[in-house]
Computed example of a mutant assay.
Amino acid sequence: MTLKPHSAIAHAAYHDLLRSLREEAVGDLRGTPTRVERNGRGYWYDSFRVGAEVRKRYLGEDDPQMTARMQAAREAREPAEARRRARARLVRLLRAEGFLGLDPTTGSLMAALAGAGVFRLGGTVVGTHAFRLYEGELNLALSLEQTAQTDDIDIASFERLSLALEDAAAPPVQEVLRDFDFAPVPSLEPGRTWRWRQTQGQALVEFLTPAFGEEGLRDLPALGVQAQALRHLNWLIAEPIPAAIPYRSGVLVQIPRPERFAIHKLIVAERRQGQARLKAAKDRAQAEWLIEALARDRPDDLLDALEDAREQGPRWRERIAASLERMPETAAALAAL
């Protein structure tokens, strides 16, 4: 497989776009930044008054970078419109350099979900839409076979985080989806759904959450939706990273770490049964591309993820090994780490 890097200009433009989006995310403060500690972890909120009531809007988990971004936001004086136009120019540059974009419907939906706070409140893009965004993170162009657009948007979040945040999407996620002509898909539990299908097309939005025990439907209070609980997902979405979608003036989301995504694809490929075997081949192709890229540029990260996954238990080791039996070149690359 040939890995083709983007230009140095595209690499710099992507990270400028990502930096600007992250600064903008914490720069629109309505009140006072407040740090709250829960279970030994710190979280930042924008605390403001509405009448006699104090409300809090979740900003992100505490770390030195968050503190620095909030300080920079306080000192920023550049008008918001000028910042938006600067980001739009960066997006145009990325498109000219061959970066993947989104169709208008998907792009505007992702922007609306981001505006409602879905990703700020812990939502993580998974699946093929996340894979496409590693183009910017790894500064590598995707091949023609890998650029096929998928109609599915998969968003995962931790149930416990959703309960702990004491904040909610605004407008509600269900309202956003209805505005884009999505309707709930009936499930086995009457009155509850984790899938929304566009009434005039094939687009499908699915909400997922890690299963700690039995798989089934769980509530995500911060997003106001139900989610399908799945095994292995908690490992995938732990410690997600920010990513910029090159649509209009940019959309800030978060995605799994690429090394975890790659190893997770090896695992889920072996869980596919029946008609889903076509998806298993796609899983392995994405894992192969990521592993080759990471083995070259981030071998320590890849090795840490592989070892950590194998330590999760015998079923994890068996599924990883079964996938690698079908992928001798990838297995050799991992063995050489």
Rank of each mutant, 00 (worst) to 15 (best):
G213W: 01
G31F: 05
D179A: 15
A156D: 09
L290G: 04
E288W: 01
G51S: 10
A25R: 03
A333D: 13
S108N: 14
D63E: 04
E288D: 14
G191L: 13
R120S: 10
I155T: 08
D297Q: 13
S162M: 03
R19D: 10
D152Q: 04
G250S: 08
R277L: 11
E215G: 00
E329Y: 02
D63Q: 05
D28C: 06
N234Q: 12
Q273M: 12
A331N: 14
G98Y: 07
P256F: 07
D63M: 05
D151I: 03
H11M: 11
F207P: 10
A309P: 08
A114N: 09
D297G: 09
A331D: 13
P186K: 15
G31K: 00
G213D: 07
P246R: 04
T150S: 07
E81M: 13
N139I: 05
L113S: 01
G136T: 02
L334T: 12
G117Y: 01
R38S: 08
A72V: 11
A156V: 07
A73G: 10
G60K: 01
H232M: 09
D154H: 05
V251T: 10
Y134Q: 01
V54I: 15
Q202D: 15
V50C: 10
M66R: 06
Y58S: 06
R260F: 04
G313Y: 04
L93P: 04
E175Q: 11
R218L: 10
G31T: 00
F207R: 03
L133V: 11
Q198K: 11
Q254L: 04
P5T: 02
R41D: 14
D181P: 01
R197T: 00
S20L: 10
V26K: 00
M70Q: 11
R197N: 03
Q286Y: 05
A25G: 00
A8N: 12
E318M: 05
R326F: 05
S157E: 07
A86D: 13
L278V: 14
A333I: 08
R197Y: 04
A80I: 14
I155F: 01
R260S: 00
T330H: 02
R92T: 13
R74A: 12
R317W: 02
L252Q: 09
A203P: 02
A76T: 04
E270A: 13
G117S: 03
L140A: 03
L59H: 06
A295K: 13
E75D: 15
G123M: 00
R315N: 12
D304C: 02
G201H: 02
N139Q: 00
F180G: 08
P5G: 03
Q198C: 06
W194H: 15
D297H: 12
S187T: 01
P328L: 08
L337D: 12
G42N: 01
R277K: 12
E288F: 02
L204A: 00
M110H: 09
A96E: 12
T150I: 05
P240H: 12
